[in-house]
Amino acid sequence: MRIALFATCIGDTMFPQAPQATTHLLERLGHEVVFPISQACCGQMHINTGYFPESVPLIKNHIKTFAPVLDGEWDAIVVPSGSCTGSLRHQQEMVAKNQGMPGMARMAARIAEHTYDLSEFLVDVLGITDVNAYFPHRVTYHSTCHSLRITRVGDRPLQLLRAVEAIDLVELPEAESCCGFGGTFSMKNSQTSTAMLTDKMSNVISTRAEILTAGDYSCLMHIAGGLSRARAGIRAMHLAEILAGTREEPWEAPATTTKLGI
């Protein structure tokens, strides 16, 4: 298959190891991955904060950039973020309708039909859960709010993790509870956010995991920041990073990328 990668702005600017690992994994599985160079933010940050008019140029740019999927140039658009996938599916069309742009709304909806979170694409489109990954570490998985409740990836990430060779996958207590990030929520409601983060950290530490994983680096950034300040010794890694390597060909993030945790 020919796949267009939407790296997301946080992936592109702060944690490129997630889109890099996604690309490596998909290419290892025999698919061609292209990176449309004009891609930018999907507008989620603006939309979540109520800046609908300001998000319109970003939505227009996304539609223009990824419209080739409608002509069959690509088979799918894959996103290493349940949060951004949810925004593309549910927010862009909604904002376009709100701003009186029905044509843009229709285009956004059509492109969204071809857009998948990485775990969805692997399990639902490719029909695989075992990607021949090898990761001999103790890992726990955090179900991020948007991936769980908006994109509705369900247990697909766990299906993929359970099939990883040599992994010691331990259940995270209260895995479905919010970590307290929520984008601007963590800044505007910092005390509440910190209390939620403290509960999440306690649950992560209780697993005695080496690695905390999730499908969104935004939440991983929030939790790993707390774990690092607490000197918990737990690293954060995106799901794609765990799935990218094999026993014969280990995958390591390039030295220029950001590693969360100690």
Rank of each mutant, 00 (worst) to 15 (best):
I234S: 01
V204M: 01
T129G: 13
S193L: 05
A108F: 11
G226A: 11
T129P: 02
T207K: 03
S193M: 06
M196W: 04
I234H: 04
R231I: 05
F185T: 03
K200H: 13
G233Q: 12
P136S: 12
A224E: 03
I205E: 05
R208K: 13
V164A: 01
C179D: 02
T140D: 06
C145T: 07
D199K: 13
F181H: 05
E210H: 10
V125E: 03
R149D: 01
T194G: 01
R152T: 10
S147E: 11
L169I: 05
N132W: 06
D168P: 06
S228A: 15
S143E: 08
S143H: 14
E174I: 13
M187I: 12
A108L: 13
H146D: 05
T184C: 11
A112V: 11
Y134H: 15
C219H: 00
S186G: 14
T144W: 05
S119W: 02
G154M: 07
T129M: 11
C179P: 02
R208W: 12
R152V: 14
I223H: 02
A166D: 08
L148T: 14
A109Y: 07
Q159I: 10
R235I: 03
Y141G: 00
L172P: 01
D155V: 10
L169Q: 00
D117M: 06
P157T: 11
G127W: 02
A109S: 11
L122S: 07
I128S: 06
N203L: 12
S186W: 08
A232C: 08
A232N: 01
N189L: 06
G226D: 08
S143C: 13
M187N: 10
T213Q: 04
V123R: 05
I128V: 15
A195F: 12
A236C: 11
T192S: 15
T144Y: 04
L212P: 01
T198R: 14
L158K: 06
G215L: 01
S190F: 05
L148N: 10
L148W: 11
S206H: 14
V164M: 02
E210G: 05
T184R: 09
H146N: 08
A112T: 09
H142S: 13
R162S: 14
T140N: 10
R162V: 13
T140H: 05
S228H: 15
C179W: 00
D168R: 12
M221G: 09
T115E: 04
E120Y: 10
V153I: 15
R208Q: 12
G127N: 03
L118S: 03
A108D: 04
G233A: 15
I128K: 09
K188P: 09
